[in-house]
Every structure is written in C-alpha cells, then in structure tokens.
Amino acid sequence: MAKVLILFAHPRLDRSVANAALAEAAEGIEGVTFIDLYAKYPDGEIDVDREQNRLVENDVIIFQHPLYWYSSPAMLKEWQDLVLEYGFAYGTGGDALTGKVFFNATTCGGGREAYSKDGIHGVEIPELLVPFRRSFLLCHMRVLAPFVCFAAGRGATGGDLAGHARKYRYLLEALVDERVDFDQAETVALLSEALDTVISAP
C-alpha cells in the first residue's frame, strides 16, 4: 500500500467551490494525508523540518491548488523555496525524495478549449506547470501528467464538479492500491483525461 500526501493550498477555502469539492472527495481514504497549508501556517512561517518529514514518510506527493495567474497560490511557492533544500531534495547528498511520485491537481475557471494553442490563453496546462515539473525532476522524482479540473469556477458553464470529484477520489484510491501505471501516467497529456489508460482494475 502506497502512502499519498496531498499538500493543499487555497487562501480562501470558505469561498472555494471546486477545491472544496475535491478536498471533500479526498476525505476518509486510508493511506491519504490531506494537509491544508494555509491552515497549518496562517502566519506564513513554514516548519521546514516537519514538512520534510512528511515528504519522507509518503510515496506520492500531490500539489492540490487553484490556478492563479497560470501558477499556484503563493504559499506553494514559499513551500518549495523552503522545504526543497539543497542536501535534502537535490544536490550533494540530496536524495531523500529519489523515486517518489509527484503531480499537480489543479482547478481552473476556464474551459478545456481555453487552454489550447487557439484558446484565449494560448497554451496547454502542462506547459504552464513546467516549473513544478522541472523542480521535482531535479529532486530525482517521477512527475506524472497533471490532474486538471476545467470550468471549475462557480457558475461556469459546462462544468462537472461532481464528476471531477468522483474521478479525483477514484485516482487517489488507485494510487494507494498501487494500481497506477506510472510509465503511462508520465507520458499522457492530462492525467484527468486518461484515468482508464493508467489505472488497472482492482
């Protein structure tokens, strides 16, 4: 049984719709630890040792967050800057994370078509998330394709919030049961659109 760590960052959970739904979906799965970073560190002072221990104890690390200005909320950047230390995560002697698995689970207001070459944003989501991908590759980890919930905003048309939540939970359970084919999951475009390909039946 693999252990999964969700590092969740949303500064206004009380106003969140999509992330609140995903958070609820992640509840009560044995083997999944859900950490609300803004709740843990309301004054912004991250406990680096504690965070590093959490990473060591888990096999799969997920950044769950809304997409703010084509990136994550500020807390996750601060978390990376402090926790992924030289000598711990990378560099000489920095092999604490070797072989672990990482991916982003992100929600965005725009629809699927908005995030394409011809859409209003002009890029695909995986291109935007390159900094995360590169960072964790540098930490000798396997980086899977992102899990993206499009049209997740309140009142967005064509959204399927319940569907997103259901798929998220399905993925998390498969990760714990070690039924995810990581080789495949690294190569697909979006994890959220390839669950049937990467997950084998129990």
Binding site: H10, P11, R12, R15, P73, G155
Partner: peptide, 11 residues
Amino acid sequence: RGWTPPPNRKK
C-alpha cells in the same frame, strides 16, 4: 479583495 474569483456576469 484577496483571492476572489471574478464575478460571474451572466449570473
């Protein structure tokens, strides 16, 4: 003003 999604005009 913090972290507020844009208002939904249609709604």
